[in-house]
Amino acid sequence: MRTQTNLRMIALVLVPFVLIIIAFELMPLAVMVMDSFRGDEGKGWTFAQYVTALTSKYYLTGLKNSVLISLYSSLVGILVAIFAAYSLTRFPTSLREKILLFSNMTSNFAGVPLAFAYVVLLGNNGLFTLLFQKMGWDILAEFDLYSWIGLALVYVYFQIPLAILLLYPTYFAIQEQWKEAAALLGASSFQFWRHIGIPVIMPGLVGTFSILFANSMGAYATAYALVGSNFNLLSIRIGALVAGDVMTRPELAGALAVILAITMIAAMWVNERMMRRVRRDLR
């Protein structure tokens, strides 16, 4: 008798959570996936939205652009972080913590504020744009912040602190004694990293890369703040299709959103496969 009232009370206590989750998490996702298999204005069941998404040149380019900018920015971000995070581990603890704190703070600097800062730096009247003009250097003459290179540059900025944050702990898996042992056995520094160091941090590297990739695939605010809906990115297209100024097509948006989710899940899956392979090699 007591346990029954107890159970009933527990069930009652969980009601608010269950309601909120159904209303704002599960149902929207389910409706979105279902709608993506419907015709325009929710009529009938069809694959037409996916056919449109994957054959129309416009949306295919958006997908390609998203994947490319994510790949490039993640690659640059992780390359910088590989060296920067290792350098950090060479410093005394107090200095290390201060630097990490600063780097973490800049990782809050993303989205709209970041886009704005880059306009101040590299926009048409930006600090560096003018500086280089005055110096007569024309490296920036061709540069346009509102182009792909510009956007990629802004993406790199938010990738670097995140990559450092994620990669930094993996270096502690390498023990100093290993380096000494390798050196005693006649290995050069290069050989140490080639055969011991890099394989040890490899899972961390691949994991970090996939998180960076997913992070930039889903990014929306930065590009939107720079040029509104003009960039042809998958996330921007989705936003424009559900809340655009012209006509909204939630069914097509749903199909694109499912595709975006699949690319992200694929990245995670590849990452896991790689990790498993790396670990088998180690054994």
């Binding site: 998490e25 149902m27 979105m32 709608d35 990014a219 929306y220 996330s235 989705i238 989710a261």
Partner: peptide
């Protein structure tokens, strides 16, 4: 699982379903 799901779903995707409903 329920609690970590939003981690994998970018906000722009979440918005689609919310706006539809």
């Amino acid at each position: 699982g329920i609690a970590m799901l939003p981690y994998a779903v970018p906000p722009v995707v979440t918005a689609v379903g919310l706006i539809t409903i």
